[in-house]
């Protein structure tokens, strides 16, 4: 991993570590209004520290996806603030938000991550192509190698297996050297073995490539691979656990389940 360490150092020279990562302050999202209003997020303050793997854990409806979408600038919060790499998202125009997503945020969804008719290689470089830029060849090759995609690049996305597709999506998320990668249930559609494999690659993105990852999941085993687990319940932060084990995560989930 000598090369990886070198590449990592050169990335870090670009931006001080303190300004990477992301955080939210008192983030609130309300859907609807009046009697039918639903508070999907209710004053959520979360830190996604740079070069760390943070998991957002909770049952369905707890607000995981809403938090991901608001933090990634895909959706606007009702109140509260979001910072990505030191930039506040609130008040940015649609155009500026689009640019920010393209250059400083990586996204991995649960499914339908890739343009099916394009090759894996074209999917990986898509954000750069949209920006009219070419990838940094050294970094691109490193990402492709670390994710084990070397011999899949020519395949059309429609013909990749679920695990391969998620790895290509992760490579696309990493190729711009974003401030943070948001992964929304990235293993939700995969069997447990393939899911574990994808988690290993998310881990390597942090450990070997010095990247920052935030992942929403409802799977305790997946959450246990993170450095920190933030538990959400009814749109609020219920708990934060550092260096978790699967058993600990499961216990917390049981406690949360008992409370609600």
């Amino acid at each position: 991993m000598g090369n990886a360490a070198e590449a990592r150092r050169s990335v870090l020279e670009d931006r001080p570590a303190g300004e990477r990562g992301a955080r939210t302050v008192e983030l609130t999202k309300v859907y609807g209004s009046g009697d039918t209003a639903v508070r999907a997020l209710d004053g959520v303050t979360v830190e996604f520290p740079a070069e760390r793997f943070t998991a957002i854990m909770g049952q369905s409806g707890a607000g995981k996806s809403t938090l991901m979408h608001c933090a990634a600038g895909l959706d606007t919060a009702t109140s509260g603030r979001v910072f990505v790499g030191g930039t506040e998202l609130g008040g940015l125009s649609d155009r500026a938000l689009t640019r920010l997503r393209r250059e400083r945020i990586g996204l991995v969804f649960q499914a339908f991550n890739l343009v099916p008719t394009m090759t894996a290689a074209d999917n990986i470089t898509l954000p750069l192509t949209l920006a009219g830029r070419r990838p940094d060849p050294e970094w691109h090759d490193l990402v492709v190698r670390v994710l084990g995609l070397g011999n899949r690049l020519r395949h059309r996305a429609a013909r990749l297996s679920g695990g391969q597709a998620q790895r290509v999506a992760l490579a696309r998320a990493l190729v711009t050297r974003p401030d943070i990668v948001f992964a929304d249930e990235p293993t939700g559609d995969l069997d447990s073995r393939t899911g574990a494999e994808v988690l290993t690659f998310l881990r390597r993105a942090v450990d070997d490539l010095g990247q920052t990852v935030a992942m929403a999941t409802h799977d305790p085993v997946a959450a246990a691979r993170a450095d920190t687990v933030v538990f959400l319940a009814d749109g609020r932060v219920a708990d934060v656990v550092r260096h978790p084990t699967a058993a600990e995560v499961l216990d917390h989930m049981r406690d949360l389940g008992g409370r609600s």
């Binding site: 640019r99 969804f109 339908f112 954000p127 949209l130």
Partner: peptide, 16 residues
């Protein structure tokens, strides 16, 4: 629609 949404997510502008 999904594909276009995906493109928007990864950085396609409305103009694009």
């Amino acid at each position: 629609a999904r594909e276009i949404g995906l493109l928007r997510a990864v950085g396609a502008t409305r103009a694009q």
